[in-house]
Each structure stands twice: as structure tokens, then as C-alpha cells.
Amino acid sequence: MTTVQPAAESTTHIELHLWSDLVCPYSWVAKRRVEAAIAAFERPHDVMLRLRSFELDPDVPVGGAVPVREHLSMRYGGGDAGTGRLMNAKASEEAQADDLVFDWDRAVRANTFDAHRLCALAGEMGGPALRSAAVERFHWAHFGEGLAIDDHEVLQRLAAECGMDERRVAAVLASDDYSEQVRADEREAGSMGVTATPFLLANGYAALSGVRPVDDYLALLRGVATQSV
């Protein structure tokens, strides 16, 4: 009679921290690719992905409905309209393989601080899964629907769609709750010299900056797993 041995219990634990901004197209692409790498990893249940906050441009004024293309042209191209179009086209090309479509004709500039505060709230209310859902919803609202994700009415509705308690969301938006959590994320990133997103840190020592292919993230996971055995 053949005796079936129970599978060996894993001793490897990998904690990933992904810093991103909600109006950064490469951050959204990186999130999807990191998740794909985790799914392809031999022990996906040993991996914990924690999403962290980062503002690429914290001085962006709230409101104004300024098109992203115009904002990028002013910030990086001295007003040259071609700069914004080129940057948007590059991001769209990068995202094609990930089935992400950016509607640059509708996307508007937004200050992301309050949206990041709600992401921190989501993490407290429902853990990494709810935070991930909030990040996805805010990304899609910005890039796919042309919504101003610094408008409190918009944020209230989007958070409710994610399953977040509406009264708690309203209370947070009316206060400065979770501001320190966002600032702490940004301080930690700054202490490592991070100035742009996305930025991925594994187990506190292995890092990848910028958006990478899925295979690069998978290689990082396997390398860290080998070191952790």
C-alpha cells in the first residue's frame, strides 16, 4: 500500500511593499504585473502584497478639471502640447499587454492625498484585499472614466462602490484622519531615496524601481524565496 505523505508546510514568507500613486499609469501597470507574478509563483500563498501611498506631485491644487495632457505639458515640457501627448502615448503603449486602456481625452489632473487617505482606511477596514479594491477603483475612475479623484463627492461614491462604510468615509474626508499613515509611507520611501513610482521592496532588502515585465517580478520572488530558506 502506498502511503501519501502530507505536503511539507512552507517556511518561506515574502512581504512585498509596492509604493504607487493613483494617477500614475505605470503604478497601475506594475500592480497588475506584480499580482500576475505572485499568481505564477510556486508558493503564492506565502506572499503578502502591501500597497503603499506616494504622491508624485503633492503640490497639485485640488479641482480645476485641468486635462492630464495639459498638466504634463506644462510641468515637463514648458507648455509644449506635444510633451503631454508623447508621455501619454508611451504609457498607453506600455499598458497594452496588460489590457489596460487609458482615456487621455477624459483624464483630469488630481491631487491624490485624500484618495490615499481612503486607501489607508480601506486597509484598516478590510485588509489588503479591500485596499487593493480601492486602489483599482480609483485608478479606473481616473484613467477610464475621467473622474476627479480629489472631489469628495466622487471619492464618497467610489468608496461606497468598493464596499466601504459610507459614514466612516464621510467622517474621514471631513477630517485629517489617516494623513499620518500617508505621510509615513512617503517618509519611508523618501528614506530609501525613492522619488518616483512604482517602487517595489521585497522583505526589506530586494527592490525594483519603475515598471518591469512580469518575469522580472517573478525572478525577484524566487530570488528572495531562495534567500529565505
Rank of each mutant, 00 (worst) to 15 (best):
R137D: 00
F138H: 06
S20W: 00
N111Y: 11
L200P: 01
A202N: 07
Q96A: 12
A8R: 15
C162T: 09
P198F: 10
G78R: 04
V4C: 10
P67D: 02
F143V: 00
E15G: 03
N111A: 02
V62C: 08
D177G: 05
M164T: 02
Q181H: 13
T12P: 07
T3C: 04
C119E: 06
R43N: 09
D216P: 06
M87K: 15
C119W: 06
R106V: 05
A141W: 11
A37G: 00
V47A: 03
R137Y: 08
R168H: 08
F102D: 03
R187I: 12
A206N: 02
P128E: 01
L86M: 14
H142K: 08
G190V: 00
Y26G: 00
R106W: 07
V135L: 01
G146I: 00
P25E: 02
T11Y: 10
D46Q: 09
M87Q: 14
R131L: 01
E161R: 09
E186C: 09
V135K: 02
V182F: 07
D80Q: 03
E35K: 09
E186G: 12
A7G: 10
V172Q: 13
E42L: 05
L158R: 14
V229Y: 11
S27M: 05
A171W: 07
V108G: 02
G64W: 06
G84R: 14
A134D: 00
T11C: 04
V154C: 07
T12S: 04
E15Q: 10
A110P: 09
L218H: 05
T2E: 08
E124S: 13
E124Y: 14
K90H: 15
M74Y: 11
Q227V: 05
A122P: 08
D165V: 09
M164K: 04
V211Q: 13
P198Q: 12
P44Q: 08
M164V: 01
A7D: 03
A89Q: 13
E124C: 10
G79N: 13
V224W: 14
G78I: 09
T226P: 04
G163A: 07
M87L: 15
A160F: 12
G63F: 12
A37F: 00
L220C: 07
E188G: 04
R117T: 01
D80Y: 10
A110I: 03
L208N: 06
I38F: 00
Q96R: 15
F113W: 12
E136K: 02
M1F: 15
E186F: 07
G223E: 07
A133M: 03
A159T: 09
S179Y: 03
V62F: 11
